[in-house]
């Protein structure tokens, strides 16, 4: 039981990070109709900003975080306004290639801006929570709980906004049909720009959460989560907003649970295969339900 609980608490950070990244990717996918491959590096850039603000000004991570989120948000808005708005007639594949060109730009720009440094991070809250159960000790950093609270607040706020605010309505309208939404008087330019900005800010938050939990930071350190997010997107179904996020919570949890199961069965040598197993299951589900677990079937017009 103690080991099971440790596994659960250890999954908090990956679950938070994946959920946030997936939220960002879904927002961009719904409003700009492209998968943003640059999400990972833009988020990582935000984490670099947080780190450099912390070290150069001696601020705490709480004060540096908004700076990083702001910078990522501005970068994302500049990308939308400067590139995607002008490339409206680029086809879907072309848009994806543009985001991949952005990867190279951000990867090239990071050492130019920050120099070649290993960014240092401190957790949001120091200390461990530890308690004893009948069959052992459970301990995990307090930081995880703080990160979880932040994630829940941010994602909850976005869902409330999407559901009840005027902005959310315009996002949903743009997602269902950009041209008709434009005709109905919705300023789709603003909707897309705000979605991109929001995605950038969420990405920076995700990267900072990931970095604050002690993982090594480099410009590619969010790429794995981005791959999770794409997979979660189609596993949950891109046609809704909640589907991808729920799937995003499932993927890291399933990974850790498979590792737990393998260890309990006494085959620790198999832990490396857990990701293969989870990906495999996800692909099989997608194969039989191409529109995703929560997705609605969209009739194809000929």
């Amino acid at each position: 039981m103690a080991y099971f609980l440790s596994t659960l608490f250890g999954s908090i950070i990956p679950m938070c990070v994946t959920a946030l990244v997936t939220m960002a990717i879904t927002l961009i996918f719904k409003t700009s109709f492209t998968t943003n491959f640059a999400q990972g590096v833009i988020s990582a850039f935000g984490a670099y900003v947080v780190s450099s603000v912390m070290t150069s000004n001696g601020l705490s991570i709480w004060l540096a975080l908004p700076a990083g989120m702001l910078v990522s948000m501005l970068i994302a808005i500049v990308i939308d306004v400067g590139i995607f708005r002008r490339g409206r007639y680029v086809n879907a594949l072309g848009k994806q290639i543009i985001t991949m060109g952005l990867i190279s730009i951000v990867v090239g720009a990071t050492p130019l801006v920050f120099g070649i440094v290993n960014p240092g991070f401190t957790p949001f809250v120091k200390g461990l929570i530890s308690f004893d159960l009948a069959d052992g000790n459970v301990s995990f950093p307090k930081n995880s709980l703080v990160c979880m609270a932040m994630t829940i607040v941010v994602i909850g706020a976005i869902f409330v906004l999407l559901r009840y605010s005027k902005w959310g309505l315009s996002v949903r309208a743009t997602a269902s049909n950009e041209y008709v939404a434009g005709m109905m008087g919705i300023n789709t330019h603003v909707v897309t720009a705000v979605s991109w900005g929001l995605a950038g800010a969420i990405g920076a938050l995700a990267a900072t959460i990931n970095a604050s939990s002690g993982n090594t930071v480099n410009i590619y350190f969010m790429t794995n989560y981005q791959v999770f997010a794409f997979l979660a997107g189609i596993l949950g179904g891109f046609s809704t907003f909640h589907g991808p996020v729920i799937a995003a919570l499932m993927i890291p949890l399933a990974n850790n649970l498979v590792q737990y199961a393998v260890n309990v069965m006494g085959r620790p040598d198999l832990t490396g295969w857990s990701m293969v197993f989870v990906y495999g299951i996800a692909l099989v589900i997608i194969f039989f339900k191409p529109q995703g677990i929560f997705g609605k079937k969209i009739a194809k017009k000929v």
Binding site: I83, V90, G94, I97, I98, G101, L102, S104, V107, G108
Partner: peptide, 19 residues
């Protein structure tokens, strides 16, 4: 680093202006 930067810019320019 500029090489990476420029290759990214080149990709974007090609996609946007020379499909």
């Amino acid at each position: 680093e500029f090489i990476t930067f420029i290759s990214g810019a080149l990709v974007i320019i090609v996609v946007m202006f020379f499909p």
